[in-house]
């Protein structure tokens, strides 16, 4: 089975500084791929390259190939918006719009042109259920999203991303600002979601990577050092630097 997403010889520059160097990696469908590594290693940059979020960053230049179902994401006639509609994103800091819970989840649907209120309502409910938030908010969909707790806000952002039915969901340290209980709920949710979505998650916590992911990629100084099934990476790393990192000798 071909990879859902893949990069070949991917390099990313910010101005004259190379943030990612020659990364080749396959993202498997319906699996969780974790990107780990010390901060500044380029894992977030890599993630944002997958759905062309870096397009608007001034001075950012991408070299190499990123594919989605074998098609070049940076192809000449591909609109970045088309990519983002199929490759959704959840950010490190929850970023709900200062509007109602309902409008947050419906945002992506509305901008895609969905007007029918019943369909919208159905999709909003479905997405909130998928994000395990429905029971907590079903009676106050009209309330401001900013009134939710931090963990709830992040799950709302996940629901918002799911509402447009992406095929791949990118998560940039989605639980880094949350307490352990909220983190556990997000992790549970991620394991649940992988049955229907392909997930790529950046995390600074190796325990988290071990808990939620099927595959793990270790980045160091902009390079992909090692990539393989999570279990193997954490038990029998091939590269010395990987072993040093996961045993906590640096980073």
């Amino acid at each position: 089975m071909p990879a859902k997403m893949a990069t070949r010889g991917l390099s990313v520059w910010y101005g004259s500084k190379r943030a990612i160097q020659d990364v080749t990696l396959d993202v498997e469908e319906n699996a969780v791929t974790a990107l780990i590594g010390p901060s500044g290693c380029g894992k977030s940059t890599f993630l944002r390259t997958l759905n062309r979020m870096n397009d608007l960053v001034e001075g950012c230049r991408v070299e190499g190939v990123v594919t989605l179902d074998g098609e070049d994401v940076y192809g000449r006639d591909v609109d970045a918006v088309a990519v983002r509609r199929r490759v959704g994103m959840v950010f490190q800091k929850s970023n709900p719009f200062p509007r109602s819970i309902f409008e947050n989840v419906a945002f992506g649907l509305r901008i895609a042109g969905m007007r029918d209120r019943q369909t919208l309502a159905a999709r909003v409910e479905e997405s909130l259920r998928d994000a395990a938030l429905w029971d907590e908010v079903k009676d106050r969909l009209g309330d401001s999203a900013l009134a939710l707790s931090g963990g709830q806000q992040q799950r709302l952002c996940i629901a918002r991303a799911l509402a447009v039915r992406p095929e791949v969901v990118l998560m940039d340290e989605p639980a880094s600002a949350l307490d352990p209980i909220a983190t556990a709920r997000i992790e549970e949710l991620i394991r649940e979601l992988k049955r229907r979505y392909t997930i790529v998650i950046v995390t600074h916590s190796m325990q988290q990577a071990a808990r939620v992911s099927d595959f793990t990629a270790f980045f160091y100084m902009g390079e992909l050092v090692e990539y393989g099934p999570t279990e193997r990476i954490f038990t029998r790393p091939i590269q010395k630097r990987t072993e040093e990192y996961i045993t906590g000798r640096f980073g």
Partner: peptide, 21 residues
């Protein structure tokens, strides 16, 4: 906040939709 622009873009909004909405 920059976050809000990124949230909209990440949901597949065009630049103009991000600005207007």
């Amino acid at each position: 906040p920059r976050d809000l622009r990124e949230a909209a873009l990440g949901l597949g909004a065009t630049r103009l939709q991000t600005v207007v909405r």
